[in-house]
């Protein structure tokens, strides 16, 4: 088991190095720079600005200097927000985004698993079709549509929930979590339905029924664990996706998360911020994929034995 984790972590190093290198050079290929603005900048001023950010060095020197800083965990100063470091911006935005992603994942799991399991228990009946059609709508409905609709209904017309903000008033986390979680709920519903259908036709389920267990125990004690394996395998990428994909929801609800900084950084050519958040998110994605692999192995007896044998 430890060998498995160790080797996966070692594999992550070249992956991250490639991510850093490709990002570093790719953003420099994009036309325009961080100091271009609608009003022409005096050449002397531009030169002074570039010197303050080491842009006067050759690209390769900048690259090695960046790697040097990175090895101390220093992601450099932000171009767009002078006086703030990228570390600081990430430290401010990430906890918010992580919290939002966590709630969204909970919403997605609760709704998705319930809908998926219900559907799988009576396939090809109304109990299957209704939740699955709703799931289909969930997949098709982008959050930039769902968010404003929820806000209009619950925020503006009913006046039950705040229309924006994060942690300012009770309940302002409800709508963003639902909006962000909805699309994932739909995926999870379909995954758990498929997983459950497969498991429910296995021999050991028949055995469980044969020994006289009530149906709900068959489902909860025997079927769920096997049926949820595809869902668990999806959780790692889903959480990473929620983290990096929360931009739209953060914008709609004015949430001070990392997603907004990340996307704006690309528009602003905020080189250090783009690199910093990319490296940070790439690391997270690697870690979460690893975690979900471990979890999946733990849930699947065959994989577990295989790992133990190593």
């Amino acid at each position: 088991m430890w060998r498995f984790i160790g080797s996966r972590l070692l594999q992550a190093i070249p992956v991250l190095l490639v991510v850093i290198t490709v990002t570093f050079f790719l953003i420099r290929v994009a036309p325009g720079g961080p100091f271009d603005s609608e009003k022409a900048v005096v050449p002397e001023v531009k030169a002074a600005l570039e010197a303050q950010y080491r842009l006067n060095l050759t690209l390769f020197q900048q690259y090695t200097a960046y790697l040097g800083d990175l090895s101390h965990g220093d992601l450099g100063p932000s171009f767009k927000y002078p006086g703030r470091s990228v570390n600081e911006l990430i430290a401010a935005g990430f906890p918010v985004t992580a919290e939002l992603a966590l709630y969204a994942l909970l919403v997605a799991l609760v709704i998705g698993v319930i809908a998926g399991v219900l559907a799988s228990l009576k396939p090809n009946t109304a109990q299957d079709y209704i939740p699955m059609s709703v799931a289909m709508i969930g997949i098709c409905m982008p959050s930039l549509l769902l968010g404003p609709i929820l806000i209009l209904v619950f925020g503006v017309y009913l006046d039950w929930l705040p229309v924006s903000g994060w942690g300012d008033s009770p309940g302002d986390k409800v709508l963003p979590a639902i909006t962000l979680g909805a699309a994932y709920a739909a995926y999870i519903a379909r995954l758990s339905r498929a997983g459950m259908l497969e498991v429910m036709s296995q021999d050991y389920i028949r055995t469980a029924r044969a020994k006289g267990l009530p149906e709900w125990q068959v489902v909860s004690r025997h079927a769920l664990r096997g049926g949820m394996i595809p869902v668990v395998a999806f959780l790692g990428p889903a959480f990473a996706g929620l983290l990096s994909g929360s931009f739209v929801v953060e914008t709609i609800f004015q949430i001070p998360g990392l997603g907004r900084f990340y996307v704006q950084a690309a528009f602003n050519r905020d080189y250090t911020m783009i690199l910093g958040s990319t490296v940070f998110l790439a690391t997270l994605i690697v870690v979460f994929n690893l975690l979900s692999d471990i979890l999946a192995a733990w849930m699947n007896p065959r994989l577990r034995n295989q790992l133990r044998a190593q």
């Binding site: 404003p148 806000i151 925020g155 503006v156 229309v163 914008t251 004015q254």
Partner: peptide, 18 residues
């Protein structure tokens, strides 16, 4: 001062008197 970047959200905030 609120950083109201999304103008649609800003308008909704005004509507609910934020």
């Amino acid at each position: 001062f609120y950083p109201t970047e999304n103008i649609a959200s800003e308008e909704r905030m005004f509507r609910v008197e934020q």
